[in-house]
């Protein structure tokens, strides 16, 4: 099999799309989660322009109305439309999740790759930082960071990123460590590449698929974390529409039978987390060479 005849070349974007289509067709659940993902992105991007009511406008005359044709998800104690608020909140929650995951990827991913590739003191420093973070209950640590730095969206993003740091650093470290002595890394050295260039052009691109799966899986956690912080009052402040606050506000009305105020934002939260976790599993199938039969 020295020189097999030239087959139709498949590479680049076309191959990725083709392979994705194959995986989605093979696995209906992944296809479903891709659909949900598209829906969430749509809600985040165009949601605020298409919702029927102003999410901040209160109308005491229609306060605490159950779901109806006019108000699909009912209204809350100030008469605000729950449906509009849930949709508008998507953008904020999605933004927090994406930003914190991007931040932790940059911090944890790079630190981990450096630790795995260089070893020695870099490895020890990164390892101990990760250990220190993991010594705290993660949510309590996130609470502490937000409480200390102040209630703002930036600080929620930072806190969520920090609590996820060990996860990224460790995965990146072990993946980089495996590739440290790989033939292609040595070959790159023979070609005159320095260490930094080897890390950036040889090692990092090869661990990206695994990191992307990890990012999708932690997106769900990041959304939960942000909502959780808001729920206990350490996050986004009312009246900003945000799923966590809405659940917190609605919780008080559960006992009196007005279930819809907490239920629908909770449902949105659940669907989002569910979607990102399924998506992570699906992405793993796409990047896992074992499935590339």
């Amino acid at each position: 099999m020295t020189d097999t005849p030239v087959q139709a070349p498949t590479h680049g974007i076309a191959a990725i799309i083709k392979h994705s289509r194959y995986v989605i067709a093979e696995n209906k659940v992944t296809g479903f989660s891709f659909g949900l993902f598209v829906l969430i992105v749509l809600a985040a991007v165009i949601g605020p322009y298409v919702v029927p009511y102003d999410p901040l406008a209160s109308a005491t005359s229609v306060a605490l109305k159950p779901p109806s044709a006019a108000h699909w998800f009912g209204t809350d104690q100030l008469g605000r439309d729950v449906f509009s608020r849930v949709i508008v909140a998507t953008r904020l929650d999605f933004f927090i999740a994406v930003a914190s995951v991007a931040l932790v990827f940059a911090m944890g991913g790079l630190a981990g790759v450096a630790a795995g590739f260089f070893g020695g003191w870099v490895d020890r420093v990164v390892g101990r930082i990760a250990d220190t973070i993991m010594a705290f209950p993660l949510f309590v640590l996130a609470m502490g960071i937000v409480a200390a730095l102040g209630n703002s969206v930036q600080n929620i993003i930072l806190a969520t990123a920090i609590v996820n740091f060990p996860l990224y650093a460790r995965i990146a470290r072990s993946e980089a460590n495996i590739r440290r002595d790989a033939g292609f890394v040595q070959a790159a050295r023979l070609s005159g590449n320095g260490d930094i260039r080897i890390v950036l052009t040889q090692v990092l691109p090869n661990i990206m698929p695994i990191m992307i799966v990890q990012m999708s899986l932690t997106m769900g956690y990041a959304i939960l974390n942000a909502a959780g912080l808001s729920f206990i009052g350490l996050g986004v402040r009312p009246p900003t529409p945000e799923w966590g606050i809405m659940v917190a506000e609605g919780a008080a009305f559960m006992v009196s039978g007005e279930w819809w105020i907490a239920f629908f934002p909770g449902l949105a939260l659940m669907i989002a987390v569910f979607c990102f976790n399924l998506l992570g599993d699906g992405l793993r199938d796409i990047v896992d060479p074992q499935r590339r039969t």
Partner: peptide
Amino acid sequence: FQDPTDSLNPRFTAARAIADPIMRL
């Protein structure tokens, strides 16, 4: 190298792999 699979970066095309030493040195 011993193992032709292991010694090529899976993310580089053949041309990029061959060009790498020329680009650097």
